[in-house]
Amino acid sequence: MIELTNIRKTYGSGDTAFEALKGVSFTIEDGEFVAIMGPSGSGKSTLMNLLGCLDTPTAGTYHLDGKDVSTLSDDELALIRRTKIGFVFQSFNLLPRTSVMRNVSLPLVYAGISEEERGKHARAALIAAGLDEQHFNHRSNQLSGGQIQRVAIARALVNEPSLILADEPTGNLDTKTGNIVLETFQRLNRELGRTIILITHEPDVAEHADRILSIRDGNLVSDDKSHIKRAAAQTI
């Protein structure tokens, strides 16, 4: 469970200080599929960095699974990221010239898990992310964009995190491949019960989630589940 209470983030100080988040509060339950939407400069990237434990807020508290992570040190945050968070990036960020299996098991390498165990977990994660088994031992530069993003999703899944954070995961993909990736997220959410937070500036991407949080100028402006009803109404 994610609980944000009055989160503020200020960059710089004095006259040049810029407040990227101006007191944001929300709660996300386990197993939710949430989209955080907003134009560039709205503070959604700052919010993602805080949610992903890459950064700490200037003020306010952030509880992840009941633990206050807003005041931890660099290395303590690294341990939280290692066990509780999986990232999917817009630019994939796979290690070049490295096999798919090695890329996926990298988070487990840092967790100090044995090679045998890593293989099992990586395989399961790749199957869950929907990559064909024939690609498992390919190098990351031998794959297509859609396949690469599936590998990246598998890497985010492999440590069985409480939260998967996807930052514009379809930004570098064509619409068709993007849809496949979004359907993968939906399936992971539905079938495996993973909590997924999708950060995007595109409304039609956001609508794949069950709940949309809109951010504008550092404030939460709407928390909306109405599009599901709309979609439901359309199907009737």
Binding site: L54, D74, D75, A78, L79, G86, N93, L95, P107, Y110
Partner: peptide, 13 residues
């Protein structure tokens, strides 16, 4: 970028 990624997925200093 690779270092950033490694840190994001849990590598300590």
């Amino acid at each position: 970028r690779e270092i950033g990624l490694r840190k994001a997925i849990g590598a300590t200093r």
